[in-house]
Design a protein around this nucleic acid. Structure first.
Lengths: 353, 353
DNA sequence: TTGTAAGCGTTATCAT
DNA sequence: ATGATAACGCTTACAA
């Protein structure tokens, strides 16, 4: 019916709608972006014309003309690991119906990979950016600074906001992993433990896990407690945690309380401990206290229940979405937010001695 | 230094590079898209100029001009639920470095939501599309058909391919949930059970879970076995599964084997059963056999280990990426793929009577 | 309240 | 092997 130009999608354009409505292109454009500037009856004609021709806007053309992209990009280490999946779920919920679309790029815990993704991203002129963590390659930092100067809101999630909202400081949404590590150690020491163990996770590039461990070690040292550390091997987390605990318990003397980089590691070790305890004697276990991190659902399911640190997985994503949308609207920089973690003391860390 | 036009990002453009290299725009464009068409020394000059001015392509402009978008969109019910997170992880790994970016849209298990996301998506002219499941609203089907006719590859994941690769049939990557339901029932009946139970999941819109249940019921009916069914309530899956099993066991007579919509439900029920069993007697439990679905890591951790169905979570994503990229390259339609599930018989389904 | 003119930065087509 | 010209579909700036 209608002319089919040599190029393009062949989809109806603003001009097609305009023709059908007896107005010009720009009026139709206004119908979408500032409908209140149209005379009501004009708007009605345009609406009818839009339906009639089946008009769908062309995002690329609009973005090229306006210089704004309606893309929010998120770079996360991994999705299979459920905490980031929950964060992304929160982020996409927060972005829903905002007119922005979420572009997702996994970095596999690699700063180099993150930098490459960031470069690829530049081509899209994203409206806003979500990065995981505060550490990036030098080149990535440069790209980010460029974006920030140009007014693109950037938030870093899953890491601590810098102390007092310093102006110009990167906006971060999350918590201080080092501090959480310290709190974990303090919890165990408050229960009377003087010889602690720590099982770190096997992902070498996960510096946040390293920080928790470092905080844990610092608090232990400060209190004069003894500390044994071990890195869990890759593979099934449960098995890995079990193996790591055995390593610690084999030492003489063995720690009386052990903290883990995450609940999966801890749960594996914990159920093993219970099984051994109950087969050797029917009395309640007198083995080490165990403390996890992440408050995975499993932790409430083992008996006794696993003590852990509750992290605001989905809330980090929702908060990031709020912060970015606010910044996008106001034109100002995005705000960071310190989100609380809660140390949930349950049955696996009873009072000691 | 350089002119700052009234509009645009102010980023260097092809023309800036061209000027620095002493060539024209189009030569620089060719440098990126068909470098072998350039004289080697011209290419070298262009390369230097690109670095010099710090050129980054403008995706919107390129896509507007070419009519192709370099966006692959994926619509999934939910990410917090780990199986889809693993699928998306597989998908994004498969897409990595392909030049296509992943746009992620959650549908919250709502067909209406899916339709809206699809409409929003049309504005982006995605190069390819990933949908979850074969069921969509009528309007969504229309949109999809339009896309397919126009040559956009579309694959539906987590559902069964249609029988023999019918031409024109939607490409699906996954398996037949109804058939898996039947296999689950058969497994239990082969062990000697004649009175089965089924615990369905609480997400009313998850038709795939309904299909597994229907298959389970059909197989039971066909074999003349008795069946009791119950829907798990919303909330923590472990607790929910536990509650549901109690409902079934309270009936007189009670089923001797119970299947669950997923491993979380099953695991909650299973550990509960073991706890009760061991506190009442030290003999091995003689309670009902339990069968899960999904092969979550937890299932290998409970003792006895939970029998379940292993699903190819990440493989579905990787396969979708492969199929779409192949279709994009060949220009043909994408291919579906039937992926195998494996029924993993473990300790929770021992031989019966 | 509506319209005109001039791009936005790239790629397709055809020419040299 | 390189270039000139004309889109691509929309929005901004300025007029009327």
């Amino acid at each position: 019916m209608s002319r089919r130009p040599r190029r393009g999608h062949g989809r109806p354009t603003l001009d097609d709608v305009a023709q059908a409505a007896g107005v010009t292109r720009i009026t139709v454009s206004r119908f979408f972006h500032s409908p209140d500037k149209l005379a009501p009856e004009t708007a009605a004609r345009v609406r009818a014309a839009v339906d009639e021709v089946g008009y769908v806007p062309n995002a690329q053309a609009g973005q090229l003309a306006s210089g704004r992209s309606r893309v929010v990009a998120a770079l996360v280490p991994n999705l299979g690991y459920s905490i980031f999946a929950e964060t992304i779920q929160g982020l996409s919920e927060g972005l829903m119906d905002s007119g922005y679309e979420l572009m997702l790029m996994p970095t596999n815990y690699s700063l180099e990979r993150e930098e490459r993704q960031l470069r690829a991203l530049m081509a899209w002129s994203p409206s806003a950016l979500v990065l995981t963590g505060r550490r990036h390659s030098a080149a990535a930092e440069q790209l980010l600074n460029g974006l920030r100067e140009q007014g693109t809101p950037v938030v870093e999630i899953w890491d601590r906001p810098d102390a007092p909202n310093e102006p110009g400081a990167p906006a971060r949404i999350g918590f201080d992993h080092r501090e959480i590590g310290m709190r974990m150690a303090c919890h165990l020491m408050e229960l009377g433990h003087r010889h602690l163990g720590y099982v770190d996770n096997p992902v070498a590039e996960d510096y946040r896990a390293r920080e928790r461990r470092a905080g844990f070690a610092a608090a232990a040292a400060q209190a004069g407690a003894r500390l044994d550390e071990v890195q869990a091997p890759p593979g099934d987390s449960f098995d890995s945690g079990r193996w790591a605990l055995q390593q610690l318990l084999a030492r003489q003397p063995a720690p009386s309380a052990v903290a883990f980089a995450n609940d999966l590691l801890a749960a594996g070790a914990w159920v093993d401990l219970q099984a051994v305890g109950s087969s050797l004697s029917s009395s309640p276990t007198s083995g080490p206290a165990l403390l996890g991190f992440g408050d995975f659902p499993i932790s409430r399911q083992v008996r006794p229940m696993l003590s852990t640190v509750h992290t605001p997985n989905a809330e980090i994503g929702r908060s990031a979405a709020r912060s970015l949308l606010a910044a996008l609207q106001s034109g100002g920089p995005p705000e960071g937010q310190a989100l609380a973690c809660e140390l949930v003391a349950r049955g696996s860390t009873p009072r000691h001695s």
